[in-house]
Design a protein around this nucleic acid. Structure first.
Lengths: 283, 283
DNA sequence: GTCAACAAAAATATCGACATTCGTTATTCG
DNA sequence: CGAATAACGAATGTCGATATTTTTGTTGAC
């Protein structure tokens, strides 16, 4: 069903690079998601969300309608609605006559998120383990396998591989709780997870991925499949704590700044500043 | 600072009717909130939120832009953005080319909300009791007093008094956790509480207010002021459970239907139906 | 009588122009 | 020289018209 990439790579090595389809390269993303998004609002919403989570839109920065409008090629109301939808995810705030803003990052924020995540994640996991059927197991095993195919040592440093890793890591954790049916738990968990991903990306960018992560994932998966609720919950709590600890060492201002040296794809200037007055001035 | 209502009531009776300023009568609300809303979006947002929580917009019903647009006197994009903001509160859903919809109600939904509310409410209360200063205590005592001024026996039946009661009940519970600083806990608690208010209103409309509620409130307040965390948490959990039990007796379809015999202020027809074809047809 | 294709109608989503508000800089007054 | 003020520019918020999509209603064939 996807005849487009027929003659791309015909290698036959034993285990080549982990089939990196260019997950969200700047161009590819646009085309793809614009196709399978039902509406332009949804398209803008997803793209904005990705960029916030990845840190391409700096934490705390102002989201100027006019700029993003042109950048994304949609009307102002369309973009505005997409941003409003992003408020539901607690990734963006909006205030009276003040416009939209990326939610700031801080270590206290990450602490609270991690703490609540432990509640929600375990609750979701409990339920998933109780309800999980064969399909759920298959999903977990599959997602873990895909995640495990990535050679961690090679990830640190490579932009593209980092993206793939983050994507698959996300998929694995989703698969774990896929069998949880409670809508509210799912919603809260999802909000918290999305927010925590921002810190996850930051952590990867700053200190790289810790090597123990694969074994942690494996242990969690095995406990879940063995239906050992208590163990699985304990392990996932530790997993969350380790993520927190990885960032706790940095000074607050470094965390608030987000990922450094990032070309801020789709964002105006760095933080709250104006784009600079020079350029086309006429005085 | 409010010279408007200078010569209104000069009574000097021992304890008259509990000074019912018409909290959100259909007209008054519009004027008032339209004034102190910074933007039209905020105005529409608040008004829609109130109507959803009160059940004037039936659970599960479709929110037709064109209809509400005229009703509220704002442009379609403005209303659209207000609705998008309501998605953040989990009071409204939006789906692809399908428009907006009031989130449905069900007893399972209420169960999950109540369950999660117990987590969040206790967590918020714990923190509030730990941090609470004199202002917090004053706020709690004041809110309780106002709530307690209402004669419950007289409430059941009177539309206006029900609104006042619900409003003050809300204020009391807000005051209890006002000293909680954790943004995420506050946010989640708030979402859950708003949603649970829908069921609260339904409960009041169907079975009236249980007479024990005042003593429950008093006990919670006293425990909180005495800084008895464990007792306060236990009491509030019981409080929540009692609210749930009040509705659990009804058949599912009655709960899904929302408040009966309500003129659906600001809503088109009852549920998913069209407004009727007659009127200005020209065939 | 049931189903399917087609046409009409309604509702959603999208757009770009316009009005309003806010923050900044330049100016004036004490 | 400093503070308050006024004009400017930029960004937000608001609007109604238009394009697309979905739904409804009807006709015709099997």
């Amino acid at each position: 069903m996807r005849p487009e990439r027929a003659k791309s790579m015909s290698g036959s090595m034993s285990r080549p690079e982990p089939s990196i389809k260019p997950v969200e390269m700047p161009e590819a993303t646009d085309r793809r998601s614009r196709r399978d998004a039902k509406t332009l609002i949804e398209y803008a919403y997803k793209r904005l969300k990705t960029n916030v989570i990845r840190g391409h839109l700096a934490p705390g920065s102002k989201l100027r309608i006019e700029f993003l409008r042109k950048e994304y090629g949609v009307a102002s109301s369309t973009l505005r609605e997409a941003l409003s939808l992003l408020v539901a995810d607690s990734l963006v705030t909006v205030e009276g006559q003040q416009g939209f803003r990326v939610v700031p990052m801080s270590i206290e924020d990450f602490r609270e998120i991690s703490s609540l995540r432990k509640m929600m994640e375990t609750r979701a996991l409990r339920e998933a383990i109780a309800n999980g059927d064969d399909d759920w197991e298959a999903g977990v095993v599959g997602a873990f396998h895909k995640l495990n195919l990535i050679d961690l040592k090679r990830v640190n440093g490579s932009e593209a591989l980092v993206d793939v890793y983050n994507e698959r890591n996300h998929a694995f954790h989703e698969a774990l709780v896929a069998a949880c049916r409670s809508p509210w738990v799912r919603r809260f968990r999802s909000m918290l997870y999305d927010n925590s991903r921002r810190y996850g990306h930051l952590s990867v960018a700053k200190v790289g991925i810790r090597m123990s992560v694969q074994s942690e994932h494996r242990a969690i998966m095995e406990a879940a499949l063995a239906r050992d609720v208590e163990l699985a919950c304990r392990l996932i709590e530790e997993h969350i704590d380790l993520g927190l600890r990885g960032l706790a060492q940095f000074p607050p201002e470094e965390i608030a700044a987000g990922i450094p040296n990032l070309p801020t794809r789709g964002a105006p200037a760095a933080s709250g500043r104006r784009p600079g007055k020079g350029a086309a001035g006429r005085s």
